[in-house]
């Protein structure tokens, strides 16, 4: 199995994550921060990505970068002969997606006396129940990720990142469920976007 080239990994991470800083590119790709940054600079020289300063400190795709990503990702999919497997994985992902959104809603809100109220996380038993359901969903998501990673190795990062978010949440870092930029929900949404882009499905 060939390792995906870092340039495409970095370019594609911006396509799936939007405008993000070097640290998030590194997390998304599995590269070190210095490797990610040097790749970003090379891509900027080619006019494919651009750096937003002025206190933002994030990188984003240019129009040319978006077009180049679409082309290279399509090439990668076809040359790996992975379209059928990724399509099947995407279908299984879509079965899980509404449930994930339900769980995020249940994490953020609960009904008290018939009034939807923000979950203030003052009731550990409720939080534990919701996290238990997240863990159950995650067990069913794992084989889908494995199937995708077998077709295209770069999908393997999502498994690592999802597991990491859930571990942190379980050990008390509650922001890793829906709030943090490395939260379960954020990583999941990036996987969703990645599948759409990879298969060339318009949103």
């Amino acid at each position: 199995m060939t390792r995906p080239n870092p340039s495409l990994l970095v370019l594609h991470s911006l396509r799936c994550c939007g405008h993000v800083g070097v640290a998030r590119v590194a997390k998304a790709t599995g590269l070190t921060e210095s490797a990610a940054e040097s790749t970003l600079i090379d891509l900027a020289v080619d006019g494919l990505v651009t750096y937003l300063g002025r206190g933002f400190d994030v990188w984003g795709l240019t129009d040319a970068g978006r077009a180049a990503d679409a082309e290279r990702i399509a090439d990668e999919l076809e040359s790996a002969g992975a379209r059928t497997a990724v399509t099947a994985g995407f279908r299984r992902f879509l079965l899980l997606n509404p449930e994930l959104l339900d769980l995020c809603a249940a994490w953020q809100l609960r009904s008290v006396d018939g009034v939807m109220t923000a979950n203030d996380h003052g009731d550990p038993s409720y939080d534990a129940r919701v996290l238990g359901r997240f863990a159950d969903l995650d067990r069913r998501a794992a084989p889908v990720c494995a199937e995708l990673a077998a077709a295209l190795p770069r999908f393997g990062r999502y498994r690592t990142r999802l597991a990491d978010a859930l571990d942190r949440a379980a050990s008390g870092a509650l922001a890793y469920v829906t709030d943090d930029v490395a939260s379960y929900h954020t990583v999941w949404a990036e996987l969703h976007e990645d599948l759409l882009v990879t298969l060339g499905i318009p949103r």
């Binding site: 939007g18 405008h19 206190g55 933002f56 959104l101 995020c104 953020q108 929900h185 949404a189 969703h192």
Partner: peptide, 30 residues
């Protein structure tokens, strides 16, 4: 856009204006 909302919210409150929303806009809505 959702991305703009997340990015701009760091500096102060944001009103997200969209043609319509889908579950993908959850980050922006949040």
């Amino acid at each position: 856009t959702t991305d703009a909302a997340v990015r701009m919210a760091v500096d102060g409150p944001v009103v997200l204006v969209r043609p319509e929303t889908s579950p993908h806009d959850m980050r922006g809505l949040a």
